[in-house]
């Protein structure tokens, strides 16, 4: 009994030493900034000088700001693409699972966007999709006289849809395939053998064995997609559309950037960041619950 208690404290002492670098660094550079953000959201502040306390004024401004609603609308559009962004890699992984000839080559190509990264891809796509880019030239050679008008990043609706497709579907297919393939390899092969005896077809196997077998991974991948959309899009928006045309491809994350580093309204930007914080907090809680559930089963 006594020895067990001694061991517990030894563990605690060791843990303190081992955890302190992580806790100090994240405390200073993550927790403190997130917390102080709440205070700054109640002030008028240009980033220099003393912040002036103005109560909820920033929030009142925010709920009247068209840029804010534009951001929410963009996020809505992006979220609508998530089902396709989950389903497509799931289907491809299921095809590759059965050992299609040359599947490694497909896997290698599909994963390429993850190696190149969103900043560079955004830059390349801004060239490819531009009015003087290859797409326009191909359309011209096909006989479209007004090919210049077919400028996908030039109109609000097509711009946000293009961005959504590129970021949620196109960029994530490769990672999704590999992710689902790895998950599918943990399914007990005898389940498929048993189904074969029952005379099921491939589609039935997919619905009744594969999907239930990797349910956790599908849910987790969906949560990851939400994280990407709400919290990791800045690099691609910055290089592909710069938030435009107008405010059509603003997201909350991009809005925070524009307000604090382009308009120097840091107090107001903090109010945006607080709203973004709550969205992310909800996603984080869903993710934590999922991980806990995964650990128990």
């Amino acid at each position: 009994m006594k020895r067990t208690r001694f061991r517990m404290t030894q563990d605690a002492k060791d843990a303190l030493v081992l955890l302190s670098p992580l806790l100090v660094l994240t405390g200073v550079f993550l927790v403190f900034p997130v917390a102080s953000n709440f205070y700054y959201s109640l002030t008028k502040w240009k980033g220099l000088g003393t912040p002036v306390f103005i109560g909820l004024e920033n929030y009142r401004q925010l709920f009247q700001d068209t840029r804010f609603y534009s951001s929410l609308k963009s996020l809505g559009t992006l979220v609508l693409y998530i089902p396709l962004g989950v389903f497509l890699p799931l289907v491809i992984a299921n095809i590759l699972r059965t050992g299609l000839h040359g599947w490694k080559a497909y896997r290698a190509l599909l994963y390429l966007p993850n190696i190149i990264g969103p900043v560079i891809l955004g830059t390349i796509f801004s060239v490819i999709l531009s009015q003087v880019g290859p797409i326009t030239e191909i359309l011209k050679s096909l006989g479209y006289a007004n090919a210049n008008e077919f400028y996908m990043l030039g109109k609000s609706t097509s711009a946000i849809n293009t961005l959504s497709f590129l970021f949620v579907v196109w960029m994530r297919v490769g990672f999704g395939c590999i992710y689902f393939l790895a998950a599918m390899s943990t399914i007990d092969e005898s389940l498929y053998d048993a189904a074969k005896i029952d005379g099921t077809n491939k589609f039935q196997d997919f619905i009744h064995i594969t999907i239930p077998g990797i349910r956790f991974s599908i849910e987790f991948f969906t949560v990851l997609a939400f994280i990407e959309v709400f919290a990791r899009m800045y690099g691609m928006i910055f290089t592909l559309t710069g938030g435009g045309p107008g405010y059509a491809t603003y997201t909350l994350e991009f809005g925070v950037y524009m307000l604090s580093f382009s308009a120097y309204q840091k107090g107001y930007a903090s109010a945006w960041a607080v709203i973004l914080f709550f969205f992310c907090a909800i996603i984080a809680l869903v993710q934590i619950r999922l991980i806990r559930k995964g650990e128990q089963s």
């Binding site: 403190f32 900034p33 980033g47 925070v256 950037y257 973004l276 914080f277 993710q287």
Partner: peptide, 17 residues
């Protein structure tokens, strides 16, 4: 730790600067 790892860089960028 799981909770803080998802926050977007933009939420903290201003204060980090």
């Amino acid at each position: 730790v799981l909770f803080i790892q998802i926050f977007p860089q933009m939420v903290i960028a201003g204060q980090i600067y």
